[in-house]
Amino acid sequence: MLYLEDLKVGDHFKSREYEMSLQEIKQFAGAYDPQVFHTDEEQAKSHPVFQGIAASGWHTSAVTMRLWTECFPVAYGLIGSESSLRWPRPTRPGDRIHVEVEITAITPSKTRTDRAIVSYVTQAKNQHDDVLLISTTKIVVFKKDFKPE
């Protein structure tokens, strides 16, 4: 587990790879983002933007979250306070996603000395190093001497 004392600006973390299967893309989309460019290979071919089936951006985000939790194991969990994200390129069936995280700022709490807000940039990339997702995120990170109330 990582605590505030273990982190510094410029630290990098890299996850394992995760392969996106066609079946999983369709299953996720069917449950949470049922648009034809996520669910129907034939109809997706004629889509003016995707020109083929693509994973939902939310699916890519969910996989990114899973990979974050594995490569960036912060004590007490990744407690988000803010995030913004973009999907510059679609995730396709067979893409092997990995996540790269870089800490960009650490801002101590003004009222609670046992924690800080840690800001980081994440890039989810495929096997060709194409960026599929970029996010900037802020999380609460605790010091080792933190005592839950």
Rank of each mutant, 00 (worst) to 15 (best):
H47Q: 13
T122P: 00
R92F: 01
F13Y: 07
R86L: 11
K45L: 10
S21G: 05
H38W: 05
V9S: 06
S84P: 00
L7K: 09
A75C: 09
W87S: 14
S81Y: 01
E149T: 12
V131Q: 08
Q127L: 03
I103N: 01
W87L: 15
V9R: 08
H12R: 14
A44G: 13
H98T: 06
T136Q: 12
T136K: 14
D6N: 13
L78F: 00
L22S: 12
V49T: 09
E19V: 13
P34D: 15
E41H: 09
D130W: 05
K45Y: 05
L2T: 08
I134D: 05
R16E: 09
G57Q: 08
Q43L: 15
K138F: 00
K45E: 14
V49H: 03
K45M: 13
P88E: 14
I103Y: 00
S135Q: 13
E19L: 02
L67E: 01
K110A: 13
L85Q: 14
R89T: 14
G94Y: 04
F13M: 04
R66H: 11
E41A: 15
C71P: 06
S46T: 15
Q127K: 09
S15D: 02
F13K: 07
E42T: 15
I79N: 13
M20A: 11
T39M: 12
V121M: 07
W58F: 12
T136N: 09
Y120I: 05
V49L: 13
P48T: 13
S21L: 03
R66T: 11
I53P: 03
A62F: 02
R16C: 03
E24C: 06
P48D: 10
A29W: 02
T60V: 09
A29K: 11
Q127A: 09
P148H: 09
E70G: 06
P34F: 08
D114K: 06
R96M: 09
S56L: 07
H98A: 07
H59P: 07
S46E: 14
D95M: 08
